[in-house]
Amino acid sequence: MPTPLSEALATLRRRHGEAVIRSGDALGGVEAWPTGLPVLDHRLTPGGLPVGRVSLLAAASGASGRLTLLQALVAVASRERTAVYLDLVGSLDPGFLADLGADLSALLVLRSPSGRWGEGFSMARSLVVAGAPWLAIALPAAGAGSGPAGGSRPRSDLGWEHRLSTLVESVAARRAVCLVSAAAPLPAALGYASSLTLECAADGWEEAHGDVLGLRTHLTVVKSKVSTPGETAALLLRYPRPFAAAEAVGRPAVVDLTATRKVLDVPAVASDIPAVAG
């Protein structure tokens, strides 16, 4: 005997198609893009960055390593597919990316001529709709630093939140990977759009013989729509030696300090590097 609910469901299916109403178990899980960095892939529940979602690398304050981590992941992505880098900070050094092992021929660099976030998001959305599978966005602090000449963000940058929401829709529709690096204070719209927010906090420089080898940083999953938040990891973001692109491919730029508790992959200076707490 038909109930009011079953009749309503039948009407909806008749008007809008079978796909509009599905049971919860038919929705399927979240697909992941493995970063190739065990420290991330083991701790992020989908097994990497979620596909079709926006992931966010946020920093509490100051130097945190979020941009280096973003660029290390861009380098990984560019070796296997076309990657797009929206540089709203205006400070991208392709040489550094090459040192991290990036394939520059597979990397498109976008810069908004006016420095407006909304304009940049629109440009990025066009490429995502065209089929660009991997998008990285480097955002400056919300208050300053995004102008073409390094000045403050233009006052006319109104409505960027709307452009961001259309970008999020396109990322979901085209099953792209989108990773955003943003400094504090985090705009509310950005936090809302993110499905996975990783907070980076610097834990000190890694030095040997007076040289800076890299930055120790703590990574915390502060928000996750695809798994349980709260996971933490300790990383060493090792800066590559300039002009060392060839060897950078074979050596990880991101070292898991939680598991090793010691930098073991630099034998020449290992004895000088103290063990680092996780």
């Binding site: 040489g95 090459a98 520059l104 021929s105 810069r111 908004s112 001529p113």
Partner: peptide, 12 residues
């Protein structure tokens, strides 16, 4: 639309 510097590719 946005000029030649809007989309570029780097080459070593």
């Amino acid at each position: 639309r946005f000029g030649q510097t809007a989309v570029r590719r780097a080459e070593l």
